[in-house]
Simulated scan of single mutants.
Amino acid sequence: MSESSPAGTPAEERAGATATGAVAELLGVLAYGELAAFFQLSEDARLAPTLGDRAALAGVAAAEYAHFRLLRDRLVSLGVDPDAAMAPYAEAVDGFHRLTAPSDWLEALVKAYVGTGIAGDFYREAARHLDGDTAKLVDEVLADEDRAEFVVERVRAAVDADPSAAGRLALWARRLVGEALSQAQRVAAERPDLAGLLVDAAAEAGVSDLAEIGRMFARLTESHGKRMALLSLS
């Protein structure tokens, strides 16, 4: 008869519960974010100037829904109710989309790339310290190569044709980033398990929380600058 594995200490059990909670929190906010993006992009497709553009953006929306399903399925596999995991984030995510409704096609494109991109960067930072499978899933659902190619081509062509559009779109991008970071900071403040992922990064690196968070925002700013340069809006 084999011996049973010894039970973990109370501290180890609490740490395991916290880790599981953090994973559920991150997957929950990402799942709702992908679902909301699907609805938003589907609506924004109506602003497209051509049927081809409308179909292309609808394809991006379909990819967002596929990502939502991957996240939902992972939550189920962890024994977590997807609806319960997503519910705490609905107000913040919906608030971002409500405050940043695009008024035209170019604004919709910039939002799809810049606004979603900066939020994705924030959640990638949180996922850096999770288990390998979860981190890989987060990278997969936040990948934006296809979206980037689609948006960059059209925005750059529009700016080349009308250079005066660059200033307006650059201001719009700054607004998007401000709103995205505001909502991300709000979520982190209200959800301690999710915020703990960023604090754990500092502990592992042997630096203060503030120092690591400062470095994180420097990385976010750098990634945003690269996106703006690709759009010819820097």
Rank of each mutant, 00 (worst) to 15 (best):
G120L: 04
L198D: 00
R69G: 09
L26C: 01
D131S: 02
Y65T: 03
T116W: 06
E125Y: 08
G115V: 13
E91A: 12
V141A: 04
G178S: 15
G117M: 12
L35S: 05
R46Q: 10
L220H: 11
H129P: 00
V29C: 07
H129D: 11
S77G: 13
R186C: 02
A189I: 02
R54T: 06
A19T: 03
A101R: 15
L30R: 05
L78M: 10
L233W: 04
R147E: 15
G21F: 00
A62F: 06
F96D: 11
A87K: 02
R72E: 15
E140M: 04
V177C: 11
A84L: 02
A56L: 12
V199W: 05
K136G: 09
A22Q: 03
A17T: 04
L233M: 05
W105G: 00
A7H: 04
E204K: 01
F68D: 05
A108N: 07
G16D: 10
R227G: 08
A61W: 06
R219L: 11
D44M: 09
S77W: 03
T100I: 08
D104Y: 10
L51V: 11
G117T: 13
E43V: 04
T9G: 05
V93T: 15
L169R: 05
E107A: 07
P49K: 03
F150P: 04
L78H: 01
R147W: 03
R14K: 15
G115Q: 15
A24H: 08
L57M: 15
H97A: 07
R156F: 11
P102N: 15
R227S: 08
L197S: 14
V60Y: 01
Q40E: 14
A201D: 09
H129C: 08
K226Y: 01
S182N: 14
A170N: 12
A173L: 08
D139I: 00
D160K: 13
E43C: 00
D193F: 02
A201I: 12
D209K: 06
A36S: 15
F38S: 00
E43A: 14
T134C: 07
A143Q: 10
D44Y: 06
A157C: 04
G206L: 10
A36L: 13
V155K: 06
E13Q: 01
P102G: 12
Y65L: 14
V114K: 09
S234W: 12
G79K: 07
A188M: 08
E12G: 02
A184I: 13
H97E: 05
A126Y: 07
